[in-house]
Simulated scan of single mutants.
Amino acid sequence: MIEPIRNLNDICFNSRKGLYKHWILSNKSDYSKMCDFMQKINFSIQDLNSEIPQLDKPTMKSIIYVIILVVWIQEAFEKIEKLYRQDVMSYFVYSKDSELSNGKKYINAIRSFAVAHPLSTSRHPQFGFDGNYICVDIRDFKRDITSPFSKSDTIYELNFNGLYANGNRKCDFYFYVYSDKDDGMKFFRYIGCNFDDIYRVARLYIDKLYALDKHLRKSKKNDYR
């Protein structure tokens, strides 16, 4: 079972500190924007957590929905970062930035392949998406009638580290793809993904949001002229 994502209560219930300090914003008029972005993140967390009980039997709708919710958290966080004064943000360091960078690339690749450009994803070669694969469906591999006849060398797994061969068929869901380069689009290939990786991206963004809040709580107006 996937662990629920931490909510924003510890930030929102201390609304006069950290992220909610007015003087830290580049423009005080952006305060309402910041609140809107925080609300977007909080609602997305709630929706992600509410999906967890159903993910043992995922549907295409639930898979795409989870991906989009994580992307919404990503985009809202990046919007929030840009609202604060550069001199204050320049001293902020997040210890897991390298891991988050990989997570961002991963979720952007998944989003492109599942939602934005399923027939022409070519901008994510690190994850095998260089225009070779065309996504035609997303399914739970275990319940598909063709799975017993699939060769292990046609099954792959996609995670933070990229795309690699994996014939154990233990992923949560699979992209059903064709490859023009490999076999002239004659046979299915299967690219597996796990919800743990997708939720991990969301957790990293929430963890960074808490780290930023902690940094801003310690920041004093008198230290910045």
Score class of each variant (00 low, 15 high):
D47N: 08
L119E: 14
P118S: 07
E99D: 13
A114P: 09
F113M: 15
R123V: 01
Y84T: 09
I73D: 03
D144A: 11
L69A: 02
F127N: 01
M60W: 00
N132F: 01
F43Y: 14
Y106P: 02
T59L: 03
D130W: 01
K96D: 12
N49W: 01
D130N: 13
S90C: 11
E51G: 02
G131D: 06
K151W: 13
A76I: 10
S152I: 14
I64A: 03
D36R: 14
K40H: 08
S101F: 09
T121A: 15
S62G: 03
R139P: 00
P148R: 04
T146H: 14
L55Y: 10
F77C: 06
T59C: 03
I41H: 05
D36V: 09
M89R: 09
L83K: 06
L83Q: 09
S120H: 15
V93T: 12
E81F: 08
D97S: 15
E75R: 09
S120Y: 11
K142F: 09
S50N: 14
W72L: 13
P118E: 08
D97H: 10
G103E: 05
P53I: 13
T59E: 10
T59I: 06
H117T: 13
K142V: 11
I63D: 00
S98K: 15
I67Y: 05
F127L: 01
S44A: 11
C135L: 14
R111F: 14
